[in-house]
């Protein structure tokens, strides 16, 4: 390829991808690099000067027991929500692709929670958990509901899991429905003629062919789980006594409330690495399971 041609092609490519590249570079790459730079300083967020502290912030991350506790809680939360969201989402999708009445109404209904922002959702459920359920519990003498779930550390954690599942399973359902619709009908027909019952069809045909959808959905729910912040702050606000403070919220508070910008940024970077590694492993492992129809 002559260099003239190369530049011609580059021009055309820049014409189309240039603006996006420019935007991506200025709003994603630059802040990201600057953020990494800040992890080596002791900046407090406002002063005009800051000095280099080397690896001190990263050593502080290793020492910060509270960070790892909230990381552990986040892992637990992610594991539970990923399983629940995808099981519920797939189940809903499976039901809503069978011959059932008012399919579209149900689809719209299950999808709606996803359209409500996390903050509003948090306040809505806060009201439900601390007022509505308590009222019902006291009225009908149901022990488990008689005191607010949000006031108990373990139950408060479960409220997070429940609300997240409620919020995202509808979204994953849509992706699964698209996947299910793409499964060739003749395969299923052929299988049933050969005498495969519904369960065998699900296990031997549908699930293997749905792997691409699973990859996407598990990836999305993994990433959202790690990064959850709005729901966390609106529903439990980390309470009672920081027992439900997930890692994003912890990092945010470290940087902005405790005014330790460098340390908070270093923790954010560690979080980024962990999320990147986990999701890469997930995508790599599941790609290997993909099959062709």
């Amino acid at each position: 390829m002559s260099s003239q041609k190369f530049f011609d092609r580059l021009k055309v490519q820049l014409l189309f991808s240039g603006p996006t590249l420019f935007a991506f570079f200025t709003v994603v790459i630059l802040p990201f690099l600057y953020g990494i730079y800040l992890t080596f300083t002791n900046w407090d967020g406002v002063s005009t000067s800051h000095s280099f502290v080397g690896m001190k912030n990263y050593l502080a991350v290793l020492d910060d027991a509270a960070f790892w506790t909230s990381m552990y809680k986040t892992m637990k939360y992610v594991l539970l929500t990923v399983i629940l969201i995808n099981v519920v989402g797939f189940f809903l999708a499976y039901m809503l692709t069978t011959e059932i009445r008012a399919k579209n109404l149900f689809r719209a209904g299950f999808f709606t929670p996803n359209l409500i922002g996390g903050i509003i959702l948090g306040f809505l459920w806060q009201f439900i958990f601390s007022n509505v359920l308590v009222y019902i519990g006291e009225h009908f003498k149901i022990g488990i509901f008689s005191s607010s779930w949000l006031a108990d550390p373990d139950k408060a954690f479960w409220t997070l899991v429940i609300v997240t599942t409620w919020q995202y399973s509808g979204y994953m359902m849509v992706i699964y429905i698209a996947g299910l619709m793409n499964i060739p009908k003749e395969l299923l027909e052929a299988a049933s003629i050969d005498g495969a019952n519904a369960f065998v069809r699900l296990r031997k045909i549908i699930l293997p062919l749905m792997v691409p959808s699973f990859i996407v959905c598990v990836f999305l729910s993994l990433q959202r789980g790690f990064m959850v912040y709005d729901l966390n702050i609106a529903l439990t606000n980390g309470g009672p006594y920081k027992s439900t403070q997930l890692v994003s919220m912890y990092v945010y508070q470290k940087a902005f409330l405790s005014q330790k910008y460098g340390a908070g940024q270093a923790e954010a970077f560690v979080l980024f690495l962990i999320v990147a590694i986990v999701t890469l492993i997930q995508v790599y492992m599941s790609k290997k399971r993909e099959v062709e129809a």
Partner: peptide, 20 residues
């Protein structure tokens, strides 16, 4: 007081209030 005193120590006080 340090800027995160109310939040950090607040969590301890809440645990004490809740007899934890």
């Amino acid at each position: 007081l340090p800027p995160d005193h109310w939040s950090q120590v607040g969590a301890f006080m809440q645990q004490y209030l809740d007899n934890k």
